[in-house]
């Protein structure tokens, strides 16, 4: 867990400080394509003579931003569904949980492909809004979140069920507090830890999904750099310039493993405080 946190802090710092130390990521130099590492370019240059280190860090900003936003959005959707199902029970519970099961049963990758290829214009989104880079990123976030909320929803429902039975919640119900108030004020704070853990663990997965979609040409597209599309772009030249593939590959690997270690650590420490009596 500590290792994970340290890696992540370093990564975030590097991504934030990147513009101060490294050259512009978009500066081309066709005369210096595939240059080896040098003082000017600590990791060398890419197929258009751009600074690899700088692109890596700028790509990291996009990849991390996408992954974190998606994880948060998925957590929000999952929490709402789980809270409603767990609190109200009955028909609402059955309907929402069957929906969750249904989404879980769907084959993830083909579904993402269909979603990524669908035309937002036919849904009534104005074409002007679709040309911006922000839209492309936002679209990816929404698509992945749409299929990624189920784990959180199940966890939240289970926790809500147990918390709802506690005395203080019953007391709140008895004094006539509104359901939304009870859910937000009384239940949510008590079920926060599984949400945090599940969300942390999902971040790594989302980074991998983004890279897979980039591999299929459906992720974030050049010239905007992300680790996924840098890695995909480097595949073709892996024989002549292996470093171009190794660095983004390593960045993805490190980040994903860091998030997983962190999530795992959080899980252990949070559950051990709440269930100390069970420990062996």
């Amino acid at each position: 867990m500590r290792a994970g946190a340290v890696i992540l802090i370093l990564l975030v710092l590097a991504a934030l400080l990147a513009p101060l130390i490294l050259p512009e990521p978009d500066t081309l130099d066709l005369a210096a394509r595939f240059a080896p590492p040098s003082p000017d370019h600590p990791l060398g240059t890419d197929e258009l003579g751009r600074d690899l280190a700088s692109r890596l860090l700028h790509g990291g900003r996009i990849s991390l931003a996408v992954a974190l936003t998606t994880a948060l959005l998925a957590a929000v959707i999952g929490t709402i569904v789980g809270l409603l199902a767990g609190y109200h029970g009955g028909l609402a519970d059955t309907a929402l949980m069957r929906l969750t099961d249904g989404v879980m049963a769907l084959p993830l990758l083909p579904l993402l492909i269909v979603l990524a290829a669908a035309d937002p214009a036919k849904l009534g989104i104005p074409p002007d809004a679709m040309t911006s880079e922000g839209f492309a990123v936002g679209r990816l976030v929404v698509i992945i979140a749409c299929v990624g909320w189920t784990t959180v929803a199940r966890l939240v429902r289970a926790s809500t069920l147990s918390v709802r039975a506690r005395d203080y919640v019953r007391a709140a119900v008895a004094v006539g507090a509104s359901p939304s108030r009870i859910m937000l004020r009384h239940i949510l704070p008590n079920i926060a830890s599984p949400i945090v853990v599940a969300t942390t663990l999902s971040v790594g997965n989302i980074i991998l999904i983004e890279s897979a979609l980039s591999f299929l040409g459906l992720g974030i597209r050049p010239p905007l750099a992300s680790w996924g599309n840098m890695l995909t772009g480097a595949m073709d030249v892996v024989w002549s310039a292996p470093t171009l593939a190794i660095w983004p590959g390593a960045a993805i690997f490190l980040t994903v493993i860091a998030f997983n270690l962190l999530g795992d650590g959080l899980q252990k420490s949070l559950t051990s405080t709440s269930r100390r009596s069970d420990a062996r």
């Binding site: 978009d26 081309l28 258009l48 050049p222 010239p223």
Partner: peptide, 10 residues
């Protein structure tokens, strides 16, 4: 084409 587009841009 992706490469050329980025060169044109620059």
């Amino acid at each position: 084409r992706e490469l050329v587009a980025q060169v044109l841009q620059a």
